[in-house]
Amino acid sequence: MADRRPSAAAAERKRTAILERLSNRTIKPAASTATASPAFESIDFFLAKFSAAKNSIQSCIDRCLIDPSSKTELDQISTSKNSTQSGVDRCQIDPFLSKGELDQISNSKNSTKSSVDRCQIDPSSSKGELDQISTAISELETFIADSSYFLPSYEVRSALKTVAELRDLLEKATESLLPRKKFSFKNKPSSKKPPNPSPEAPAVDSKPIDYPAGFRDREEQVLVKDFRGEEGEGGEFSLCDLSSCEVYIRGKLRALFIHRLKNCRVFAGPVMSSVLIDGVEGCVLMLASHQVRIHRSIGTDFYLRVRSRPIVEECRGVRFAPFGLRYDGIEEEMRDCGLAEETGNWAMVDDFCWLRAAQSPNWCVLPEEERCGSVDISEFGESGSIGLL
């Protein structure tokens, strides 16, 4: 009977094949790491940069409030002042002091006055430093917002709490260094008339914020803007002080500003950077952007596609649903703006006024049975107002 045992050569080939499979198996995880998130999107990177910025801001506030060198100098001034006063008293008692002693007392007095002037707080300098600190805190808040899409909710809440504490410290420092003047009534109104303005003086704009071009001060109109025929993207655009209007915007935008809208419906194409919303009430907004920030808004539904988590602040009764806008060419525009993929961030809202772990009462996901679904705005005509509702 023939021997069925494998030959030595066959066994060697089998062992080599097993080793090759094991080698391929160990290589796969290394290849997968090549597609991992970049270092600047890691939690460790965020925590390190956030901690450094927080410590820098804290040091600046402490330096404004307590300057150890100033305290030492003030102690030296007090001692010098007492010594100078003693010399002045001697001048008054003893009229026969030598010229050298008189010169020494005079020099000491001048030196003390110079030191006192140097330790006086310069309001303009203090205000400049406090403004720089305020800007640094705002930049730190923006850094949190930009990083919120990859951070755990706990880290976002903790970072926002730290920012709130830094703002409280800045407020205390401002009150200490630049106290507000107390209000008091005047007995008699001034009878002087203000001087006539010079004809060369430019008129002062009463609007606090200079928004870019857009639709403003409209009521009960249908407003259409098409940026698709323009070279590149549509730049910045704004919607301000609209009431009971419908707005349809096609084409790419660089930024969109929405301010003081009431009972309006807004449908806009992709935005390459940010959408900033302030003071909307009773509206429906369908938007796609890398970042959406919503301030002081009430009873409004947002249909979003967004790369980072939407941010709400001082809002009530706002609801969120996925983006569903349609018109000719929007798919290509969404790809150009990096918004082709649905991230699900529309339902991961960060409420800057709610730092607890529980769900914020200020926003919720819009129930599916109440959503408007897909909206096609391909059939609207030329740019501008096209009539009344």
Rank of each mutant, 00 (worst) to 15 (best):
L389V: 09
S23T: 11
S23W: 10
E219N: 13
C119T: 02
A10P: 02
W346L: 02
I27V: 06
R254S: 12
E370N: 07
I133C: 05
C353D: 14
I27C: 07
A52H: 15
M334I: 08
R307L: 13
G128L: 10
D117G: 06
G344A: 08
A340V: 10
V224T: 04
S124F: 13
S59E: 15
L389K: 12
A340Y: 04
V280Y: 00
A347D: 13
E155P: 03
E171Y: 12
C91Q: 14
V312W: 00
L177Y: 02
K186I: 05
D241C: 05
E219S: 12
K161N: 14
R254T: 04
D117F: 06
T33R: 15
S7T: 09
A136T: 05
N187Q: 12
R4V: 13
N24Y: 08
V284L: 07
T112K: 05
E341P: 00
C337M: 11
I311L: 10
F320P: 00
P208L: 10
G384K: 03
C353L: 05
A10Y: 05
A145M: 08
R180T: 08
P38L: 07
E342F: 07
S86A: 15
E342M: 09
Q120H: 11
F183P: 00
R265M: 11
K207E: 09
A34T: 15
E281R: 01
K181D: 12
S244D: 12
C245D: 02
A255R: 10
P310C: 07
Q120D: 05
A357N: 11
S37H: 08
A8F: 06
A340P: 06
P6Q: 04
W354K: 03
S383M: 00
